[in-house]
Amino acid sequence: MISPSVYIARHMQVMLATLGDMIRSPMSNLMTIAVMGIALALPTGLHVILKNVQQVTAQWDGAAQISLFMKPSVTDKQADQLANILQKRQDVKSVTRITRSEALEEFRKNSGFGEALEALEDNPFPAVIVVFPTEQSDNLLTVQTMLASFKQRPEVELAQLDMQWLKRLYAIMDFGRRGIWVLAAMLSLSVLLVVGNTIRLAIQNRRDEIEIIKLIGGTDAFIRRPFLYTGFWYGLSGGILSWLLVTLSIWLLSGPVSQLATLYDSNYSLSSLDLLGSIILLGLSIFLGLAGSWIAVSRHLDAIEPE
C-alpha cells in the first residue's frame, strides 16, 4: 500500500524528528543518557582493566618456580653440587644458580642501599638455586611434593614456591571476571528499566495524541515508531557517553601506569577498549535502548484506547 521509498522516507523523518524532540528538551534527556552512560561505563571500564591485568599476567603463565635459599654456611661450591644433583631429577626442567656475590651485586645495583652494604664486613646474601619444574610437573600438587622434598635437604634454609601467589591472582581474576558479568547484567537491567520508565512517561505525556492517532486510523506500528526511535537514540547516545567515559578514564590512568611499568623495567602501556569491544558496547547499548522502549510501548500502548 505504501511504496518502499515513502516508507523509508517516513522512517528517516521519524528518526530525525525524535532526535529533534530530544535536542529540544536537553536537560531531562541528558539525565537519562548520563544514567545509561555511567551504568554501562562501570562494567566496561572494569572489563578493560581486567583485560589489561590479564595481558600482564599472561607472560607469567606456567612460570612456577621454586627458590631455594641456602644456609649462610653453604659455600658457592656446595650450592653448585646441589644444583647439579637437582638438575638430574626427572621433574626438573632447568636450574639457575645465583651465587652469593651475584646476589650482592644485584642488590647493590638495584636497591639503592649499596652504600649501606659497604658498612658490612661479610656478604649477608645466601646462595640461591632457582628450580623450574618440567611442564608435566607444573601443577600445584606435584610442585608441592617437590617443594617438600627440597625442604628436607640439609643445605636448604628456605624453600619457596613462587607459584601460589600467581594461582591466587588467577583465582581472584576469575572471581573478578564473574563479578563483572554479574555487575554488567544488573546494570544492564537497570538501564533497561531507566529507558523503559522514561518512555513510559513520554507515552503518558502524549496520551491525547496517541488517542487521536488511534481514532483516525493510525496503526500500532505507526504509534510505536517514534517511541522506538527515541529508545534507539537513548541507546546510541548512552553508549557513546560510556565509551567516552571509559576512554577518558583509561587515558587518565595511562600516565601513572606507564610510570609504574618503567619502575619494573617494562614498557607496558595500558590498552583501552579495542574496536570490537567498542562495537559490542554500542550494540549492547542500542539493544538495551530499543528493548527498554519496546517493553514500555507494548505494556502501555494497548492500555490507551479512545473512548
Binding site: I2, A9, R10, I212, I213, I216, G217, T219, F222
Partner: peptide, 29 residues
C-alpha cells in the same frame, strides 16, 4: 470522524493537525 470537542493537537499547527491522517496513511510529502 468529527468530534464535539474537536480533539485537535494543541502543540501543532493547523496544517500539521489536518495533515495527520495523510501522514498515517503514508502519503508523500
Amino acid at each position: 470522524i468529527i468530534f464535539q470537542d474537536h480533539k485537535l493537537l494543541f502543540d501543532r499547527t493547523v496544517f500539521d493537525n489536518v495533515a495527520l491522517p495523510l501522514v498515517i496513511a503514508g502519503v508523500s510529502h
